[in-house]
Design a protein around this nucleic acid. Sequence first.
DNA 1: CTGTTAGCGCATTCAT
DNA 2: ATGAATGCGCTAACAG
Lengths: 328, 328
Amino acid sequence: MADVARRAGVSTATVSRTLSGIRAVDPDLQSRVLSAADALGYRVNLVGRALRQRRSSTVGLIVPDFENPFFSSLAQHLTKAFAAPGIDLLVFSADSSIDRELRGVHSFIGRQVDALVIIPVDEVESAASISLAASSVATIQLDRRVPGTGAHSVGVSNRRGMRLVHEHVHSAVDLARQPVAFVGAMPTSSSGHERLDGFRRWFGADEPSLLGSFDAAWGQEAATRLIADGWTSGTIVTAADVIAIGLMSRLQAAGFSVPGDFRVIGFDGIGMVRLASPTLTTVRQPVESMSQAIRELVESGGQTANGEPVSKRIKPQLVLGASSPAAG
Amino acid sequence: MADVARRAGVSTATVSRTLSGIRAVDPDLQSRVLSAADALGYRVNLVGRALRQRRSSTVGLIVPDFENPFFSSLAQHLTKAFAAPGIDLLVFSADSSIDRELRGVHSFIGRQVDALVIIPVDEVESAASISLAASSVATIQLDRRVPGTGAHSVGVSNRRGMRLVHEHVHSAVDLARQPVAFVGAMPTSSSGHERLDGFRRWFGADEPSLLGSFDAAWGQEAATRLIADGWTSGTIVTAADVIAIGLMSRLQAAGFSVPGDFRVIGFDGIGMVRLASPTLTTVRQPVESMSQAIRELVESGGQTANGEPVSKRIKPQLVLGASSPAAG
DNA sequence: CTGTTAGCGCATTCAT
DNA sequence: ATGAATGCGCTAACAG
């Protein structure tokens, strides 16, 4: 920077002000600085800037893993949401490990991110990481949440999502005759937990439920178990699109028809639901609204009037596909 | 750090040496420092460290987007590869935009990443970004590459992959009677380019090819076009698993059978190929080997004996699924 | 509007 | 093996 200042015949302060745009600079000097910087191929060192400003124009996102397409979708939409404010979204994968998640928190805090967005790995074990994060930077839990950490939270109302599923199924299927089952995930995340609760609340606590993990392989496994248990028809409510897709493929491979024999309903609203055959009925999480909510929270500095963390629940939407019958 | 030093009754240098582990410290003082740091909840500021050391113990990865499952898989495997050496992999999405890609390069360089891994957006337009990156930090192109940028490159041999497909098809299908078509991507990336070249080289330049983008929606669109053109059977070689999956679903929705009427072959080897029905025959890119190659390149500081950039081509593997007939 | 100066937090000299 | 002092690159405070 001193080199640029010398070449432009100004002080380093003027160079800094020109390049950062924080204060007004005389247009003449400004252009001299810019051409000097250009000639020298100079670029500001963001580490130096971050050290001085005590912020890095960066937002960190910690995801449990990159391979879950819903997390990918959130990461992509968050990237777009922060592009305009001039903030770089940097993404770190916890690789489904509590230790790695904690490491990600330390790394981002140490790098002075302006805010930290985190999709917690575990409803209980992630508490330490998130509390630590929340104690030193604006921290927002996304999709999943861990209670009592002091961090903000943005996500859909999972129980409401299950109510939408129930209304849809109830309007079209004779529940008294059609068996219903839930294929979900172990309640080690709030989304797994709340979707199971929601299913039990609306469909009844006695309906059968199979719990595994949020991936297609589990959906296949669950289908195999249902068939082994003698199921030949029914309505299967799942906790995630990826589970539903694995489940449908195994049911179809076993000779069953969807929606003829089985109705299948997903959750999340990933892009793939439109490419499945049949297209999948699902509860869509409005990822754009969620991303916007996070952007607004970050821009407000994560400060609230009463000092309490914000918990923003967004309403999910039912998206009809061909995997379940529409009303009438 | 001064606080910790005061509490432990040592100098800041000793605190620094204890916490960074760079030089030997007396065990007594060491434990005093550690307990003082613990009591104060002190954590090193990685920005200060990065400024002083002129490196950040960080590797940047720029992907075109998060939604392509093959890129997600690479990101996940790279995360694992760098976990052990104590380096944090930070991922940035270019959102399929040249401008955003350039911004990612500036951001990572300005943050003093130890190395930059980049999956280029465009075979031509990305040249400026990559050359810039290569001129200031060890830069490795992954999967796709742009020639003449001075950056290293790690990827599979796409033409060899197409040869594997040809051998497989040739061993099982009467090529003279079975029509073959290629459904690929526009040659705006080296992978799109090279896979098309490979197809033409081994199957013949006169075989029909349809070019679109690397996503399932294009696979569906291509299937629609093939059907409209009167195709009722044949072998479809694709440039990506996601294309093949979209294609298969549309063919099946139109009443065709796979592999009965159409044989379909993918490329990349994403996890979903085992979940498709039928399971998809594909050319698998060994993502573990690719990640290891990158880790080694980064650990060597990106320096080579002759000063020339390294171009590491890894051999892809044919993985048989049920979407195409096995030999015999 | 511009220049001078100080210091963000740390790892590294150099001296002991 | 330890401590004192320096400076990494930048911007904020202050004075003009």
